[in-house]
Simulated assay, not measured.
Amino acid sequence: MALTLYVETERWRAHHRSVLEAFPGLVPVAKGSTGYGFGNQRLAEEAARLGCDLLAVGNAYEAAQAKDWFSGDLIVLTPYRLGEDPVPLPPRVIRTVSSVDDVRGLVGARVVIECMTSMRRHGIAPDDLPKLRSAVDDVRLEGFAVHLPLDRPDGSSGVEEVAWWVDQIQAARLPLFTMFVSHLDAEGVAELHRRYPGVRFRSRIGTRLWLGDHKAMRCRGAVLDVVPVAKGDRYGYRQLKAPQDGHLLVVAGGTAHGVGLEAPKRMHGVTPRAKSMARAGLAVVNRTLSPFVWEGRQRWFAEPPHMQVSLLFLPGEVRPPQIGEELTAHLRHTTTHFDRVVDL
């Protein structure tokens, strides 16, 4: 019995093809310890099935694994830094660099130069572009890259930000044949191709590609045990008291799977803030909703998730599931390790 990701495979792959059609030259992204819930090996195989010539991975360690799963070129998204731990990689791996010194540290290597965008995460500064003219002679320059923010509350344009960088690179008399872009829609990419017919714009896409059709995927946790409790009975690691008669449900999926893990959220507006404050107040009195659903409602954790399982409390008036039944789970694919992926 397991925490399972069920996939309607043909529907899932049809979505991949639709994204590829919308973004010609697509570079799929397979990264992180979860591989968007599917595992990076599966995503590498799906990228090959799509006929993609290039696969993006998160870091050099992921590239060292992915080289055995994907026969095309690999691009490492995390920038190379001078003095980093050496990882044996084949020549078909392209390293991202974000400073002039790091370009000079990769003599003979294939590189993509990341530009500092409004993300303010990493990238070469505009003033350093002229310094690259001599440095790029010693590497195999595969292109430049821009990683854009998801939200633009100031109303600015992602297309114009990319266009500004294209103009700066060309003004610095640097060779620009390929620009890799992230978080730009298909219309924006098409507009850039119209403006700069001599530049190939290639979109690096992960979430939209693998997780864009939510209805093609279902997460479920198997019920391992159903234990009746009376009001006041103690249970679990912390020996809490049952608030009323009911059942404890032992469900596959715990902290080792990423169950209970929640990333900080940016709140916009009064209602989301009020809901967040209400959840925080309930957590103070040990009331936290689990991601597991039974009889149409998310059920409360009886206590914090264990390593492999979660303990849920089900009130006595609610019909309990049978051992072996599965509960729907609302989980983030980017933080969840599933026991298995089942193709339907």
Rank of each mutant, 00 (worst) to 15 (best):
L150Y: 14
D137A: 10
T207H: 04
S98R: 01
S98D: 03
A186G: 15
G206N: 06
L132W: 00
H193F: 11
H147F: 08
R204P: 04
G108P: 11
Y80E: 03
L106M: 07
S98G: 11
L141F: 05
R208Q: 10
R104T: 02
K215G: 02
Y80W: 15
R110P: 05
Q168E: 09
M179L: 13
V181L: 14
A145W: 02
A109L: 13
T78Q: 12
R220C: 13
A186F: 15
I113T: 08
R120W: 15
P149S: 14
V100L: 08
V97E: 00
R121W: 11
S182T: 07
F144D: 00
M119T: 05
L209D: 07
A163S: 08
V181P: 01
L132Y: 02
V97D: 00
Y80S: 03
V189H: 01
R194L: 09
M179D: 08
P79R: 01
D151A: 12
D137W: 10
V87F: 08
G212L: 12
P126A: 04
K215Y: 04
G206T: 05
R200P: 11
V107C: 13
S182H: 13
M217T: 10
A186H: 08
L176E: 08
L209Y: 01
G158E: 13
Y80I: 01
W165R: 01
L77P: 01
R220V: 10
R110W: 05
H122T: 06
R81H: 15
L129H: 03
P153R: 12
D154C: 05
R95P: 01
R133D: 09
R110Q: 07
I113F: 02
W210Y: 10
R220Q: 11
P79S: 05
R92I: 05
C219N: 08
V112D: 02
A216F: 07
D185F: 03
E161H: 03
S156N: 14
D167S: 06
V112G: 04
M119G: 10
I113V: 12
D213V: 11
P130D: 11
V103Q: 00
I124K: 00
T78D: 14
V100C: 04
P130H: 13
F144Y: 08
G212M: 05
G188Q: 12
D102G: 01
F177Y: 07
I205F: 06
P90V: 06
L211Y: 08
C219V: 05
P130V: 14
R81K: 15
R173K: 13
P149F: 15
V111H: 03
L192F: 14
A125C: 12
V93Y: 00
R95C: 05
T78S: 09
D138W: 00
A125W: 09
V181H: 03
G221C: 04
S134A: 03
G123K: 02
P79L: 01
T78K: 06
V111L: 14
V97F: 01
D185G: 14
E142F: 15
L184N: 02
P126K: 10
V189I: 02
A145H: 06
R95A: 06
